[in-house]
Simulated assay, not measured.
Amino acid sequence: MANINVSLQVLPVVEDARIYPVVDKVIEYIQSTGVKYEVGPMETTMEGDLDELMEIVKAVQNICVKEGAERVVSIVKIDYKPEGVTINEKTYKYKK
């Protein structure tokens, strides 16, 4: 299957002071997987195989709980087309 994009916004239900540290753990995990990704101010976009990216989405929920979240609200967006889609094709003209 061709590469797709999955954007993930994670909202762990923790004390305000713990939100960024928990999200940092999530981003560290995404980085460790080796998939192409870009962190934005509201979400992280990943590029790769759909099954692999969905496994990452599942793992992120467990990371949040392990880090003390009582609940995790996640917003997932999938951009798919049969011939594939890249982050670069959508953002190249806006990069400095």
Rank of each mutant, 00 (worst) to 15 (best):
Y80K: 12
R18Y: 09
K93G: 01
K90H: 14
I63S: 03
V13L: 05
K93L: 14
K96I: 04
E55D: 14
K36G: 09
G34W: 02
Q61F: 05
V26K: 06
Q9M: 09
K93F: 14
N5E: 08
V85L: 10
A69V: 09
V10P: 13
V14Q: 04
I56K: 02
M42D: 02
G34V: 02
I4D: 04
D79T: 14
N62H: 14
K96C: 05
I75F: 15
E83Q: 06
K36E: 11
E52R: 13
M54D: 11
N3W: 05
V35R: 04
K36C: 06
I19T: 07
E52D: 07
I87Q: 14
L8F: 10
N62Y: 15
V6M: 03
Y80P: 12
I75D: 02
V57Y: 07
D79P: 10
E83P: 05
E70S: 15
K58I: 07
K93S: 13
V35T: 07
E67H: 03
V76R: 08
A2V: 03
I30T: 00
Y29I: 00
Y20M: 10
E43W: 04
E15S: 15
P82A: 08
K77G: 03
V73M: 13
E28D: 14
E47F: 05
D24G: 04
Y37D: 03
E38D: 08
A17L: 07
A2C: 09
G34N: 02
P41E: 15
K36P: 15
L53M: 01
V60A: 00
G34S: 01
S74I: 03
Y92V: 15
S32L: 10
A17D: 15
K81A: 08
G68C: 08
G48S: 02
K95V: 11
M54G: 04
K95L: 12
M46H: 09
S32K: 06
G84D: 13
A59S: 05
E55M: 11
E70P: 09
V35W: 00
E83Y: 06
G84I: 09
V35Q: 03
V39M: 07
D79C: 06
K95D: 09
E28C: 05
V35F: 05
G68D: 01
A59N: 14
Q9R: 11
E47R: 00
E38P: 06
